[in-house]
Design a protein around this nucleic acid. Structure first.
Length: 278
DNA sequence: AATGAAACCTGACAGC
DNA sequence: TGCTGTCAGGTTTCAT
């Protein structure tokens, strides 16, 4: 479900609810494991740590955990995949189906990872021992909210793939997914099929601006709830009401009335206005 | 190195 | 009612 604005919303909500709390015990379930770190090791590392801070890196949610002695603490990394949720609930609230992890907190509440489709992933990240600079979990690509227009332009130089596929490539920009790729290309007036390396400076400037404006607007509205996305409190976002093309194939363009077209690009449903996007 | 298609899963919904 | 086909916020893997 989640792209940058949804992950940001969840991370902020979870931070407010669980920071400074101690993990008393850990339950990890399910057979085909959503765990990149072995369950026994993950439970061992998590138990007894204090959660210092929760934040977003790309589409990952990062938990900074307390260290022991003079060692820097490890990090717990959560990726929600398509349908993952992180919920903070009183232990009296029934555990939903497809719950794969439960962290019992000293306050009595529980942090639960729920994921029907099981595309989500959990992992422990250990900091390098004697690196001098930042050695915490790094994303795979550049951060779309803060990247400069020069660096943004440089990312696409020489790329022969479509601009849509390039926007979804997490090694270039991390955090952009299918909704915000389609919506930002519409706002920039660029057809998703255009070869990334052939876009000129002015077009990339429009795309850079559109992407940042849309991501910030979506964060302000709590993200997009297309089917079942909810934040840490179980509350839906509102940005789906602002979608101009995403999932609107066949419906009239809100600007010019031309039917929105749906195709497949980079293996993903892709929506655009054939009149507004050149 | 880069690109694209397939695979990984379950659930919701439309159409018959 | 129930079956079938399609689609869904993502990433990894494998073959070009």
């Amino acid at each position: 479900m989640p792209e940058l604005p949804e992950v940001e919303t969840v991370a902020n909500g979870v931070h407010q609810r669980v920071h400074s709390q101690v993990i008393e015990s850990v339950w990890l379930g399910s057979k085909p494991e959503p765990f990149k770190t072995r369950p026994a090791e993950m439970a061992e590392v998590l138990t007894g740590r204090r959660i210092e801070r929760v934040y977003r890196v790309g589409k990952h949610i990062v938990f900074d955990l307390s260290g022991q002695g003079n060692e820097d603490g490890p990090q717990w990394i959560v990726h929600l995949g398509m349908t993952g949720r992180l919920l903070v609930s009183a232990d009296s609230v029934p555990v939903p189906a497809h719950t794969h992890a439960i962290l019992k907190l000293a306050s009595g509440s529980e942090l639960r990872f729920v994921d029907p489709r099981r595309f989500g992933r959990l992992a422990i990240h250990r900091r390098a021992n004697n690196a001098e600079h930042s050695n915490g979990f790094q994303g795979s690509g550049r951060e779309p909210l803060t990247i400069s227009i020069e660096e943004f332009t440089e990312l696409f130089r020489g790329r022969k793939t479509s601009i849509k596929a390039a926007l979804l490539n997490q090694k270039l920009l991390h955090g952009v997914g299918n909704i915000y790729a389609d919506e930002s290309l519409f706002r920039a007036g660029i057809r998703p099929t255009r070869m990334a390396g052939r876009l000129n400076r002015e077009q990339l400037g429009r795309l850079h601006n559109a992407l940042q404006v849309i991501l910030k607007h979506a964060i302000a509205l709590g993200g997009s709830s297309v089917s079942d996305y909810v934040d840490a409190d179980g509350v839906r976002g509102f940005f789906q009401l602002e979608h101009r093309v995403y999932l609107r194939g066949g419906e009239p363009c809100l600007v010019c009335g031309t039917p929105i077209r749906r195709t497949v690009l980079g293996g993903r449903g892709t929506h655009y206005c054939p009149a507004c996007q050149k």
